[in-house]
């Protein structure tokens, strides 16, 4: 199969970008989307052009580095997977595929399809942790955790921090990401002492970064490669409300 790629190319944040169309060589439907970009880049390099810059690393859907908005959907047409786990069999021979970077003010464009997602680190630094000094922890069995709570916490903790929720949200809201982190700790007994301080600090950092607000469209849940549930946003909303009332 072959496809036509319409890719956003932009040298850096200060230069205007544009779409450039590339015809791919013959491709194997079992190729991943990123492997197809590799092939195109090999071709560009040999033609003396600069290859397309895109983020990627583990290529097994867990590191959260890869991004891309493919035909208007972050991480491509398949549900519940990251771009690196998107395969060409999801497309048809001859398709024109539009490839854009994640777009959000807190995700500044670096080059081509690469954006900066340090805003997430700053939100995490604001409070996304349980303050426990190394070596000071009690025995792991000191606090039993109900299986249901552990499972729900794990559902939230599965977030890979890719930013697709922000990219797809019409408001560029980061609430799915933030709520997943808030909920993971909020659901576990270990996270209780800092529960309200944490949610207040993280939400307020999220606001400072300039993410939009949630209008509950649910598109974040729909594109999340780890299928993080919208319910965690409700949970965060509840916790933040309590935090406000407590002055946390």
């Amino acid at each position: 199969m072959k496809v036509k790629l319409k890719v956003w190319r932009q040298r850096n944040a200060d230069t205007p970008g544009r779409f450039v169309v590339y015809d791919t060589p013959e491709l194997n439907p079992n190729m991943s989307f990123l492997e197809m970009l590799d092939v195109v880049n090999e071709q560009l390099t040999l033609q003396g052009e600069e290859p397309i810059a895109f983020d990627h690393d583990c290529r097994e859907g867990i590191c959260g580095t890869c991004s891309l908005v493919i035909n208007g959907k972050p991480h491509g047409p398949q549900r519940g997977v990251a771009t690196c786990q998107t395969y060409l069999r999801s497309f048809r021979d001859g398709d024109e595929i539009l490839v854009e970077p994640f777009r959000a003010r807190p995700f500044p464009l670096v080059k081509d399809l690469v954006v900066g997602r340090q805003a997430f680190d700053r939100i995490m630094t604001a409070g996304g942790f349980i303050s426990v000094r190394t070596g000071s922890a009690p025995d792991a069995h000191a606090i039993p955790v109900p299986k249901e709570a552990a499972e729900r916490a794990m559902d939230a903790a599965a977030c890979i921090g890719c930013g697709a929720c922000v990219a797809v949200c019409k408001n560029a809201s980061a609430m799915l990401f933030v709520s997943a982190k808030v909920s993971q700790f909020g659901l576990l007994p270990q996270g209780q002492p800092e529960r309200y301080r944490r949610v207040a600090a993280m939400v307020e950092q999220m606001d400072r970064e300039g993410f939009g607000a949630c209008t509950v469209t649910g598109s974040c849940e729909a594109v999340c490669p780890k299928r993080i549930s919208l319910d965690f946003i409700a949970r965060m909303n509840r916790d933040y409300g309590v935090a406000l009332l407590r002055g946390a």
């Binding site: 349980i130 070596g135 000071s136 922890a137 794990m154 993971q184 576990l188 996270g191």
Partner: peptide, 9 residues
Amino acid sequence: DQCVAQGVP
């Protein structure tokens, strides 16, 4: 022990 205290589920 350390990881459990950190909230590793």
